[in-house]
Write a protein that binds this DNA or RNA. Structure first.
Lengths: 359, 359
DNA sequence: TCGCGTAAATGGAACGCTTCATTTATACTG
DNA sequence: CAGTATAAATGAAGCGTTCCATTTACGCGA
């Protein structure tokens, strides 16, 4: 890798001059500038950004740590953030915490050592967020995405979880469901609490009694969806609808449903948070609360960069992005009547047309 | 952010000594070392990796550029690579090329400027890979993942595409299918060619005539699966089975099938490259050629780091990883007889039990 | 032809760290 | 106690940039 010194020598100018033509930081005569550019081409010179960063005290890199890139929601988040970063000349250093605080801690430290200009964070649940406090104390700009780190005074771009869930459950209620189960996320996570709150709110406004038995405490992981789903389905008091608090748990739930031979939507209605891409190409098409993942990443990164560049100052901001309810097959064709009087008949063939066409 | 100088001052030692206790590069008396550690804790000191990198001429960062992180195959790749990187003390700088050479070029340049120690690359199709050649010429270690960049003398970790496809098509043939269509990837990509070759090989060994009409040239994107799938299904000479050359196109194909009311596996058999996570939790469960994505990333990163650290020298290596054929519902229940005599009956209800139980 | 003002080019300090040649402190031996 | 071997601590150079205070070159009017 050639250095600016070599470029300067080859062009027959001083290092300072070379730097000036590259950075456009001071006027250079046409002739010399041309010689410098030629040298750059000939040597295939790539400015050493490491040295630049040292001098400039900024790396033009953003750190991003989130639970699991393998979850399509988060990969969309990344894409959004990457686009914003790219537009503004930053690169993304990503890392997966796997919901382990220790890993998160490790990555945050590594990112700080690398002197990233700021950090995008979908925090993991923990009682010990000292690593985050210390980062904030050290003035490392942080923007929380999707999940707020509790008690941290930082910017955040979040989905309107309460509203999103509430609307979806309200939709189920409107269809006649009264026994609606929910598989929650890890309740240490505020986001999980919010979704549960949306569920409660919907029940409340419809005067439906909230029952602990219908609330299965999950953890946002596929296995939980499978296990808790099975539990719900095997219960003699089977609910007529199940709401999963994220897409990955719904995946597990679908496996459970399949194994038990339960049919959707005839035997049970399903709805879920997250509109993963397969929601539209598989059976049953899932009614889903679509989060604007890409937009969240995009806005989050822009917000962060605004902070980094001092274009935004003052109190931390919280942006709430609305979700969109996508009504699909998995909440159709269920006969409310069958629900009302006891255990649902497996073969209930409620005519589709009798239901409001709510697409 | 505090510096080592501040740490040294607070501990009452020289900078060199502080550096020695941090790096363990030279013996330091117990008492002083303790004072240094204390100062580090008190100041919440995070060594400036930028300065370190400048001095050491290595950043402990790996670049990774691939087409689209949103494709679950690639996010698995990343996870694998990240695990290897983490184990060996590296961080991953990821970027999505979106199959655009220009973007790829831009990222590769950015990564080189950042002086990453090496690059993991799933190359995009192009006739102009000068950016890669110049990187190789500059001794930037590169390992290709999934897709080989044509004519580049670099290491690669690839799937055994020919074999994987061949086995799957062979499976279809064994079920009695004779009219098997394939939706290919962008044929400029060697990987797409390999999968097509596997298809041809399977036909050949079964003495089935290769027909251009059954080969739909796609591009690995969902839209292609949808469009070409529809074309195939609307053709009066509808094939009895379709093989999609990647999971994302299969997604599109499923939409097409759904729209046209074609049932799988009764009306048509489906099989696909890539075993995306939804293959097991949705209907129809898809017969798939599972690529060891995670292992690919893991091995690729390790290979790259071996090169970076000089633990591996000499000629470029190519590692081929075997795929695994997962036989599932989407290739069951189809009556070979119905295929043999003309257009398949939509309602053919071949009994499942009459077919070999090939799980 | 000499100064002078402006524009262009240069050189060196500094960024935070590691490394290594020196210097300083400590311990041991005769 | 002097002398020496050994261990520990220090200071300065250098990594590749940028930035800025100087220096150099140039054109023009008197």
């Amino acid at each position: 890798m050639s250095t600016i010194k070599e470029v300067a020598e080859r062009a027959g100018v001083s290092i300072g001059t070379a730097s000036n033509v590259i950075g456009g930081s001071a006027p250079v005569s046409k002739a010399r500038a041309a010689r410098v550019w030629a040298a750059i081409k000939e040597l295939d010179y790539h400015p050493n950004e490491v040295a630049r960063s040292l001098k400039a005290k900024q790396t033009k890199m953003l750190g991003m740590v989130l639970p699991d890139i393998t979850n399509p929601f988060f990969s969309d988040l990344i894409r959004g953030a990457e686009n914003a970063a790219l537009e503004r000349g930053y690169l993304l250093l990503t890392a997966n915490s796997d919901e382990q605080v220790e890993r998160e801690k490790r990555f945050v430290a590594a990112l700080r050592s690398r002197r990233v200009d700021g950090i995008l964070l979908a925090a993991t649940a923990s009682k010990n967020e000292t690593h985050l406090r210390s980062a904030v104390a050290a003035d490392v700009p942080i923007v929380c995405l999707d999940r707020m780190a509790p008690g941290l005074a930082v910017d955040a771009v979040l989905a309107d979880n309460v509203r999103g869930t509430q609307e979806c459950v309200r939709h189920l209620i409107r269809l006649g469901h009264k026994k609606i189960a929910i598989i929650t996320g890890a309740l240490e996570l505020r986001i999980a609490g919010e979704r549960l709150a949306g569920y409660r709110a919907a029940l409340e406004e419809a005067d439906i009694r909230y029952s602990d038995e219908l609330v299965m405490k999950g953890d946002f992981r596929e296995e939980a969806g499978y296990r808790l789903g099975k539990e719900l389905l095997l219960n003699r008091e089977r609910p007529s609808a199940i709401f999963a608090c994220n897409g990955v748990m719904m995946l597990g739930l679908l496996v459970a449903i399949d194994e038990l031979g339960v049919r959707c939507p005839q035997d049970i209605a399903l709805a879920t948070f997250d509109d993963l891409m397969f929601a539209h190409s598989f059976h049953p098409h899932l009614t889903a609360v679509a989060q604007p993942a890409n937009a969240m990443g995009y806005q989050g990164a822009n917000l962060l960069i605004d902070r980094v560049e001092g274009k935004l100052t003052g109190e931390p901001l919280t942006v709430r992005l609305a979700c969109e309810l996508k009504i699909r097959e998995s909440t159709r064709g269920y006969a409310p009547a069958a629900v009302a009087n006891g255990s649902p008949a497996r073969s209930s063939k409620a005519s589709r047309t009798s239901l409001p066409a709510t697409t």
